[in-house]
Design a protein around this nucleic acid. Structure first.
Lengths: 242, 242
DNA sequence: TGCTGATTTTAGGAATGACAAATTATAGAA
DNA sequence: TTCTATAATTTGTCATTCCTAAAATCAGCA
């Protein structure tokens, strides 16, 4: 059952004045941490943006004054409606750009992230909508992440990490993190792509690796480390007659 | 006879460290002023970038210290080889982006400039080369401006402003300024596009307007103000038998 | 309850890049 | 040559946003 993240149709800020690139980076990082972890702690934001923690504290206080988020000292930051709207706009831009670069300009799924990361701050809403139209309004980016609508609504599908799929059952790879290009190249070499259906045939204890059997390509068994497995979002599948 | 602007094959700076967006804006503005006026005066740069003159003096001094240009106080700025190389890289990006947005995403020639102006600072060299390839390595942008090569070589064709084409002779519109979108829309409405061949049938004295007759579209006479005519780069044409 | 280690915040400072006000240089006219 | 209008520069601030070092706070455990 997919649940709905953020849904703002009320346009609070009439003249949404241009935000700095830095501000946009903070909002997006905080949004993504809220989705992944529930809260956005100072140290987590610092790590995501590769900054020192005091820089984050300072910036978060300024963003709170601008009304883009709420800050509870020592607890973390929470986006306001205005802040979430801006963050979702950034996420939409990023993901549409990734699809466009992949589909129209021959980028691989491991190299689009960095390019989109810079472009998302520079493109106009108009350009993004033209790209979306040219692509037939895609719903997922090349890593399986859902694309928020223009209105700022996104369905976050409920997926289960490969690390938690029971041994003996089947699942389909639906989403991977786009952060680490090296990891994406490794997955591609192993034959693990979006939509790949596999069976978990074994798992070692103590956060050990899982062994998966890819159905399609003639039963090749692959060993997937625990940490990698945690970053692979899967949809459980009943065994099918193939 | 076209003449060659800038030709640097020697890669002086080994690790061309990333320049700030601001620095890139200054270099491009100074380059364009040097092409148009020969020199780049402080006030002209300030006007082009919509900044106050003291800001320009300060930045120009810093750019001189970085070795990107030479500054003769009270005289103006001149790009060094390193500065010109960076500027030409920006110009190439800008113009390839304009062609791409026009050809692949349905932009009009009056709206591409602003979009390219922001994107040129965010795209990677790789993306630009992919776009250039997808476009068949175009040589001119949608306003007729020549596109510098990857190596930083550009042929600036010698064109004559419409304001200086003699009455009674024919010419072809080859290049227009991309700065003012309103002006571009006006030209399009008048039927003046790149490649349009026309005859100058009259010109009023004292910087008055010229009257042009567009050959193709059944002898429609158009009156073009002096200032607008100065911004239209034309190639003289012998009268042809049509 | 009170220590202890990790996290967070405060304090102070540096770099970039913009501005206004005041000063100085240049070049053309008298 | 001297004056004067224009252009350019110097000086002093301010806003952003980063950093390091030091102090404060929180949470888990004895």
């Amino acid at each position: 059952m997919p649940h709905v993240e953020g849904s703002m149709t009320a346009n609070q800020t009439p003249a949404a004045r241009r935000l700095s690139v830095t501000t946009e980076d903070y909002l997006k990082a905080i949004y993504e941490l809220q989705v992944a972890e529930g809260v956005a702690q100072t140290s987590a934001v610092a790590k995501a943006l590769e900054l020192a923690p005091p820089s984050v504290t300072g910036m978060v206080k300024r963003l709170a004054e601008s009304g883009l988020l709420q800050h509870t000292p020592y607890k973390g930051a929470q986006l306001t409606t205005a802040g979430r709207r801006m963050a979702l706009r950034l996420v939409r831009r990023h993901r549409i750009l990734e699809v466009y670069l992949t589909a129209k300009l021959g980028y691989d799924w491991d190299s689009v992230h960095a390019e989109a990361e810079r472009l998302e701050h520079a493109v106009s809403d108009e350009l993004i909508e033209r790209m979306a139209l040219a692509l037939g309004n895609p719903r997922y980016d090349p890593h399986g992440a859902p694309i928020p609508s223009k209105e700022g609504v996104v369905e976050e599908p409920v997926l289960i990490p490969l690390s938690e799929i029971p041994v003996g059952s089947m699942a389909e790879l639906r989403q991977v993190s786009d952060r680490d290009a090296e990891r994406l190249r490794y997955l591609a070499r192993m034959g693990l792509r979006l939509g790949t259906v596999f069976e978990v045939v074994a798992r070692q204890p103590f956060r050990g690796p899982a062994t998966v059997r890819v159905s399609a390509t003639g039963a090749r068994d692959q060993v997937v480390g625990h940490e990698l497995a945690e970053s692979l979002g899967c949809m459980p599948r009943g065994k099918e007659v193939g």
